[in-house]
């Protein structure tokens, strides 16, 4: 199907609107849409043609949190936060990531029945997402674990660690508090990190976690120095 042929063009627009154009083709088509009013018109026509199908579902009443979330995000911003913390995507409220957190968490716990320390009614979870809100790593622990508390980490994404670098996990205590290192982690699918003594109580109240790329032996300054690959807010479930 040639893009120059009007019949083919209309079909491409139709498949784009229908959603059957996927992957690279969809991405390419979207690029083209941005620069060319021709296909934009075709797309608009197909949207109009098929739109009546959208009205056939029974309307649903969204829960209040949806509007509250929208309001919070369209309201004029408060004073910008400081550099590093301010740059973390989750401070802006990554709601898709947090919904996914719940979704993943239940799947995740269901998949690990032997891990009795993590029960669905009492777990802290941080789903760490990359800059596109795509979940890349989950961290879970139990708040009542006073013995030798440890974090269970699952790496979901398959990002590779560059040679000569390390991944350092950070706890973000919350408002105006500097991140605290939880140590270095690996790229293994499942791993555990012991919580340093005295940090457990803060961790249970932490705003979230972040992971940054650091020199081989970790951050030389005690604060993150490299780019933040993943971050997420803490959920208690």
């Amino acid at each position: 199907m040639k893009i120059t042929d009007p019949r083919g063009r209309s079909l491409l627009a139709a498949e784009y609107v229908l959603g059957t154009m996927t992957g690279k083709a969809r991405a390419r088509f979207e690029l083209w849409l941005r620069s060319d009013p021709g296909p934009r018109r075709e797309v608009a026509s197909w949207q109009e043609r098929l739109d009546p199908l959208s009205g056939t579902a029974t309307e649903l009443e969204p829960s209040d949190r949806v509007w509250r979330g929208i309001e919070a995000r369209i309201a004029p911003r408060a004073a910008p936060r400081e550099s590093w913390l301010g740059s973390l995507a989750f401070w802006r409220g990554s709601s898709i990531a947090s919904a996914l957190a719940a979704a993943l968490l239940f799947g995740y716990i269901a998949l690990t029945p032997k891990d009795h320390a993590l029960t669905p009614d009492n777990a802290m979870v941080v789903v760490m997402a990359d800059d596109r809100s795509k979940p890349a790593m989950t961290v879970a622990w139990t708040p009542q674990d006073h013995g030798r508390p440890r974090l269970r980490i699952r790496v979901i994404g398959h990002k590779t660690m560059e040679p000569g670098t390390s991944w350092e996990l950070w706890m973000l205590p919350g408002e105006n508090q500097p991140p605290k290192s939880l140590g270095l982690i690996t790229t293994h699918d499942t791993q555990y990190v012991e919580v340093p003594p005295g940090m457990k109580a803060i961790l249970d109240q932490a705003a979230g976690l972040a992971m940054s790329v650091e020199p081989e032996r970790g951050s030389p300054t005690g604060l993150p120095t490299g780019p933040v690959l993943y971050s997420g807010t803490r959920l208690e479930i």
């Binding site: 009205g55 579902a57 649903l60 009443e61 919904a99 979704a103």
Partner: peptide
């Protein structure tokens, strides 16, 4: 929002996802 939530719901088939999509869409 009632109609748009229904549109999202039919595609993602989960209420919490559909509501997140609705929220992102309105922003």
């Amino acid at each position: 929002s009632g109609r748009l939530l229904a549109v999202a719901m039919r595609i993602v088939r989960r209420r919490d996802w559909a509501e997140d999509i609705l929220q992102e869409s309105f922003v």
